[in-house]
Computed example of a mutant assay.
Amino acid sequence: MPDDSARRNGIALTDRQRISWLRLIRSDNVGPATFRDLINHFGSAEAALSMLPELSRRGGSTRHIRIASVDEAERELETARRFGARFVGIGEPDYPYALRNLDAAPPLLAMKGHSHCCALPAVGIVGSRNASISGTKFAARLARDIGQAGYSIVSGLARGIDAAAHRASLQSGTIAAMAGGLDCPYPPENRDLLEEIWSGQGLAISEMPFGWEPRARDFPRRNRLIAGVALGVVVIEAAARSGSLITARLAAQAGRLVFAVPGSPLDPRCEGTNALLKNGAIVTTTSADVLEALAPLSQIDPFSRPAANEPPTESEREFIPSPSDQDRSSLVQALGPTPVEIDDVIRHTALAPQTVYLILLELDLAGRLHRHPGGLVSLAMGE
């Protein structure tokens, strides 16, 4: 394990490691949780890459698993360099510190702008795209006051509340979490705002490849970044089925504070925020409501525990034999379409935890496993 000073400063990836990490996360069926488990089990991305075909086969896949090539990874790194961006790994100094401790945090983030924003505690501000005049005005006031108090403001670059929060915190520091690649802002009309962010005192982050046009299913992933980077999330004007409520739910699951601004019961844009208040969100009418609640959290040393995804050393890893066909059969029979906790799977099957995690990796790489928030898993439909 690194000493405290190394952990405080972070540990930089070598060029070779960065290429291997990018290859692994861009390969078929490898998401952040699978990446973490592969690194923890095999000790390095290079070792994990060599095992992907075998693990996929053992998981029941009859198709060849696509593994990103060295050339593909090098081209993406070069694209980022030409764009003025960089890829930052989870244990490196510029990686947002609160995001490190998120369940299944992205192993690599593409970043463009001023990384000093990541050294500040962050507050998320999200809300309606079709915001009212009073809603955008309040979002701007809140972002300005909280930014002046020493926080960065993180939001999703959307119309309405998000854009107002970003603009008001351009001088103090703002982070735009993006659903597509850094070169594919959504909505397109906010491209000028994005350029103001990374040319000013702000930062744009994404876990998606360059050239990736955001799809509907990518926005919850973006919302997860907002919830993970922030110590708390403020919701302003969110309808009953708003994406902002997804951000609030993800924030609560990650142990972040959730704030909500009360609104008129006659305004459908406030139905979601009022529901959050009924369910325990912190009533927010001034910036002091946010700052007072977050003050104890912002004093915590973010490096007081090791960064997530830090692989064990060779001596710390123990040899785990390949699971038997009977082990695999027992685990698959225990799973179904309903998400369950892995600890429950271990208790039900009476298999060793290491064996369970390895079989889950095999199923995941074969496309037979679904991972859910909170570390839950389920068997893919049809299995």
Rank of each mutant, 00 (worst) to 15 (best):
P2S: 08
D3H: 15
S5H: 06
G10T: 07
I11N: 11
L13A: 14
S20Y: 02
L22P: 03
R23N: 07
R26K: 10
S27G: 14
N29V: 02
T34K: 00
R36G: 15
L38P: 04
S50T: 14
A68P: 01
E72P: 00
E74I: 05
E76N: 03
A80V: 01
R82F: 05
R86I: 02
R86C: 08
V88F: 03
I90C: 07
I90A: 10
D94P: 00
Y95E: 01
A98P: 00
D103K: 14
A104V: 12
L109C: 08
G124M: 08
G127A: 11
G127K: 02
A149H: 12
G156Y: 12
G160P: 08
A163V: 02
A164M: 11
A165S: 14
A165D: 08
S169V: 08
S169P: 04
S169K: 05
Q171Y: 12
A176D: 02
A179Q: 05
G180D: 07
G181W: 05
Y186C: 02
P187E: 10
D192L: 14
L193H: 12
G200P: 03
G200Y: 01
Q201E: 12
Q201I: 00
G202M: 10
S206H: 02
P209K: 00
F210Y: 06
G211P: 09
W212R: 13
R215T: 13
R222L: 11
A227H: 12
A227R: 11
V229M: 15
G232A: 04
G232Q: 13
A238L: 07
S244I: 13
R249P: 01
A252Q: 13
Q253Y: 00
A254C: 04
R256G: 10
L257D: 15
L257S: 13
G263F: 08
G263A: 13
L266C: 07
P268R: 15
A275C: 03
A275W: 14
L277G: 09
N279Y: 15
G280V: 06
G280D: 12
T285N: 12
T286V: 11
T286Q: 15
A288G: 03
A288N: 13
P296H: 03
L297N: 10
L297I: 09
Q299Y: 05
N309G: 00
P311S: 06
P311D: 07
P312T: 00
E314C: 06
E318A: 11
S324C: 04
S330R: 14
L331P: 01
L331V: 01
V332W: 00
A334D: 05
D344E: 14
H348T: 05
T349V: 05
L351G: 06
Q354P: 12
T355K: 10
T355D: 07
V356S: 06
E362L: 11
L363T: 05
D364W: 00
G374M: 13
G375L: 11
V377M: 10
V377S: 03
M381G: 09
E383R: 14
